[in-house]
């Protein structure tokens, strides 16, 4: 706003006092004590809460990203591939899928996720990248005597 004279700027005191207070009360309705209803006391706590909101948005994405990666790692280890190399194999084969999408594929569409694992394995082999193919859990010879009765197996 441009004020051509000094008088105009002195007259302009910002928004109406009533609406300014109402705006703050909308943010402080869930507080406890006098900072909930008093304007001057609640001012500091509202500003701090808004500042936490800004930093919280970054932390939320960081936490979600960690969870997505953990889910992708669990899904790819079922097919004998580490999650780190699985993502590199997809990047080299130019499949541009998010971690968010990949984690949801691992849960709801395991067959498509399996095919993506095979694609990344083949590209890693073409590029001669050393991917540590983890052992899938299988029955050992030591424990055959204990679980030789296959009829007793129940999940």
């Amino acid at each position: 706003m441009v004020f051509l004279t000094f008088i105009r700027s002195a007259l302009n005191q910002g928004p109406d006092k009533y609406w300014r207070i109402q705006q703050q009360l909308r943010f402080s309705w869930h507080f406890y004590g006098r900072k909930r209803n008093c304007y001057k006391i609640g001012m500091r706590y509202v500003f701090k809460a808004l500042r936490y909101g800004v930093s919280g948005r970054k932390d939320k994405l960081k936490n979600m990203r960690e969870l997505w990666y953990r889910r992708i790692n669990a899904g790819s280890e079922e097919h004998g591939l580490e999650g780190k190399m699985f993502l590199e194999g997809l990047a080299r084969s130019e499949i541009q899928l998010d971690r968010k999408i990949l984690s949801s594929l691992a849960i709801y569409e395991p067959r498509t996720f399996k095919s993506l694992c095979e694609v990344s394995k083949n590209t890693l082999k073409e590029h001669n990248l050393p991917f540590h193919e983890k052992h899938i859990n299988s029955r050992q010879n030591l424990l055959k005597d204990l679980i030789n009765n296959e009829k007793s197996v129940e999940i």
Partner: peptide
């Protein structure tokens, strides 16, 4: 307990 076992963890 052994009835429920479906697989074993690799050492």
């Amino acid at each position: 307990l052994l009835k429920n076992v479906s697989d074993c963890i690799r050492q």
